[in-house]
């Protein structure tokens, strides 16, 4: 079954809301080690970043170079943040 573009946008939107709620809940979690909470929060931020660029900005239709650049730069920022977070 092929999902229409309108449905795809709506599913993306609902998923983004769900991820935002998950992030808010995760930040209030006290049972886990702080590092794992931060890792979870940043991983969710990266997923949201990709969802917006690929679906809302329609980069999924673009040349593979642009998709690679998106993954590379987004991933590098999240990785850099994590490295800085645990480096002290």
């Amino acid at each position: 079954m092929k999902i229409s573009n309108t449905h795809s946008l709506l599913i993306t939107y609902l998923f983004l809301l769900l991820l935002t709620a998950t992030t808010a809940l995760l930040s209030g979690t006290s049972g886990l080690k702080q590092y794992w909470i931060v890792l979870g929060i940043l991983a969710i931020a990266f997923i949201k970043f990709l969802l917006i660029a690929l679906n809302y900005m329609e980069l999924s239709k673009a040349h593979v170079f642009w998709k690679f650049l998106l993954f590379f730069i987004g991933g590098l920022i999240i990785f850099g943040m994590l490295v800085m977070y645990q480096s002290f």
């Binding site: 992030t23 808010a24 930040s27 931060v38 929060i41 940043l42 969710i44 931020a45 949201k48 970043f49 917006i52 660029a53 809302y56 900005m57 920022i77 943040m81 977070y85």
Partner: peptide, 14 residues
């Protein structure tokens, strides 16, 4: 949106 989904957790949650 793209910038905010990175700013929000970094400033408000971490």
């Amino acid at each position: 949106d793209l910038v905010w989904v990175l700013l929000f957790p970094a400033l408000y949650l971490i």
